[in-house]
Design a protein around this nucleic acid. Sequence first.
DNA 1: TAAACTGTATACCACACAGTACACGAAAAG
DNA 2: CTTTTCGTGTACTGTGTGGTATACAGTTTA
Lengths: 122, 122
Amino acid sequence: MAVSPKNPFGAYIREKRESLRKKDRRFSLRQVAARIGVEPSYLSKVERGENAPLSEEKIKLLARELDEDQDVLLALCGKIGADVQEVIRKRPLLFARLIRDLKNAPDHAVLRILREVRDGKW
Amino acid sequence: MAVSPKNPFGAYIREKRESLRKKDRRFSLRQVAARIGVEPSYLSKVERGENAPLSEEKIKLLARELDEDQDVLLALCGKIGADVQEVIRKRPLLFARLIRDLKNAPDHAVLRILREVRDGKW
DNA sequence: TAAACTGTATACCACACAGTACACGAAAAG
DNA sequence: CTTTTCGTGTACTGTGTGGTATACAGTTTA
């Protein structure tokens, strides 16, 4: 196992960036790197999956830049947004249990709960 | 601000351990440290809040040892269990949104949802 | 064809994390 | 009163995180 793990995040954003680039030259690696505030060489490593972690802040900027969902990109990096974490940490007994109980629930069940909550059912 | 931040985790487990120790001498710092697998000097630093982080594994062992809830102790350390994190990372669109929407929900509302889920309402 | 721009290779960095190893003086137990 | 146990002070360690700085060759662009 001398080969690197190659998490899918790098490949994913590279593909998305290059697809945007076909329509707009401002989506070169260098220019995107400049807009999210990292060195081009570093974003290059990120896109090639060379174990170059991005901070939550940079991931969010990148999500805005590439028109992707920030939670999805964070998840691809093995992270969870600090705001979401805070909700859980403030009431761990309630939320840790709720999430574990929903682990195997099908999407439509979670969606139904989401809608209930959004309808202000409390 | 030369004083350390003193997060409440250390004080909390120290109090709990010393309370158990009054009834059972096996709850000395040294013996508890041995049972959870760290050096006594390190647990000492932990209990005094000297910026000595415990790994998730050790926190769980400590929770069992002190008869505390693991999610609560993890939360006091600013952490969230890896199993809970995994649930969110596998379906970030659903779970990140659900948790954010429940951020300001009162306990009883979350509890009601918990009961619904446990009653197998999907 | 010269200038600008592109992606990447290499070297380096500070700090956080999660500890170990050992010595010490005080207290408790025998 | 000696031995054991106790909590703590100090020094050190390897790995992960989150990057910067610079140089370089290939490709566009004017």
